[in-house]
């Protein structure tokens, strides 16, 4: 996989990161190295190996459909940068 400075810019924008030019250059070469290291795995024939869907060999960890009390709203809103009217306040969202 080819890693260019555009790749870094795209991934950074998806992750809402703003990078300086020198950071972009450094990250491009870092990511290049990481990807080519991992790409070594492609040399193995894995066609007969079942994909690992989860790291823990467990399944069906489920809870019953029972309602318990929610948190006090003031507790929940403590985590808001800004709040009011019982809600989280965020910058105006335009669609």
């Amino acid at each position: 996989m080819e890693i260019t400075i555009e790749t870094i810019e795209h991934v950074a924008s998806l992750a809402r990161l703003s990078l300086k030019e020198d950071e972009k250059i450094r990250l491009t070469s870092d990511l290049k190295n990481i990807i080519s290291y991992v790409e070594k795995l492609n040399e193995l024939d894995t066609s007969n190996i079942k994909p690992m869907e989860h790291v823990i060999p467990m399944k069906n960890v489920l809870r019953e459909d029972i309602v318990n009390a929610s948190y006090d709203r003031n507790e929940i809103l403590k985590n808001a940068h800004e709040s009011g009217e019982g809600g989280f306040k965020v910058p105006k969202v335009v669609e």
């Binding site: 929940i76 800004e82 009011g84 009217e85 019982g86 809600g87 989280f88 306040k89 965020v90 910058p91 105006k92 969202v93």
Partner: peptide, 15 residues
């Protein structure tokens, strides 16, 4: 849910 008419300068979020 986003409630757009709560404030002129922001959006209210109800989770």
């Amino acid at each position: 849910k986003l409630i757009h008419d709560a404030w002129a300068d922001g959006t209210l979020v109800d989770y």
